[in-house]
């Protein structure tokens, strides 16, 4: 029952953000649409409601967003350098990286973060190993590139989503 209420509140907030007018008719239509959404999709969305109520997760989420934005901007300059250089310094390949995360949502968020960071794009997740296509393989050492690819985000994601 709690998860139906959670998805109702989330979809209602989304409706208010999209329309952004506080007239009575708009709010009534929003409540009706959110009710339909929560009845249809309520059982697929999440298993527990408790993580939404823990305050420290939001604190780590904000710090994570700043780090993630910085990595994104760095990724863009990296790609621009590789594209505009006349000799194109690329050395691509697919490498295997071990993960320390357990839940599915944490793995998904980590894969999305890897896709946006410099030079890497995630290909597949098998068990607790993630396959990453890397545009410039600088080392052959497993420990070193695991730290380089996933180590920056793993500890924050563990605190936010587990």
């Amino acid at each position: 029952m709690m998860k139906y209420i959670a998805i109702f509140i989330l979809s209602f907030i989304f409706w208010i953000l999209l329309t952004f007018s506080f007239s009575i008719s708009n709010i009534v239509v929003g409540i009706a649409a959110a009710l339909v959404t929560s009845f249809v999709f309520g059982k697929y969305f999440l298993k527990h409601v408790r993580p939404f109520l823990q305050i420290q997760r939001y604190y780590w989420l904000i710090i994570y967003l700043f780090i993630f934005t910085w990595e994104c901007i760095k990724a863009n300059f990296d790609v621009a350098y590789r594209v505009l250089h006349p000799a194109m310094p690329i050395k691509p390949g697919i490498v295997k990286v071990k993960l320390g995360l357990k839940t599915n949502i944490a793995k998904t968020i980590l894969a999305n973060s890897i896709t946006m960071t410099p030079g890497t794009i995630s290909v597949d997740i098998v068990g607790d190993e993630i396959y990453v296509h890397w545009i410039y393989i600088s080392t052959d050492n497993v420990e070193e590139y695991s730290q380089k690819i996933a180590g920056r985000f793993e500890k924050y994601i563990k605190k936010i989503f587990e």
Partner: peptide, 11 residues
């Protein structure tokens, strides 16, 4: 296939 310049394929 991966391109000619690629050096590694774990997948």
């Amino acid at each position: 296939k991966l391109g000619d310049k690629s050096v590694k394929d774990d997948y």
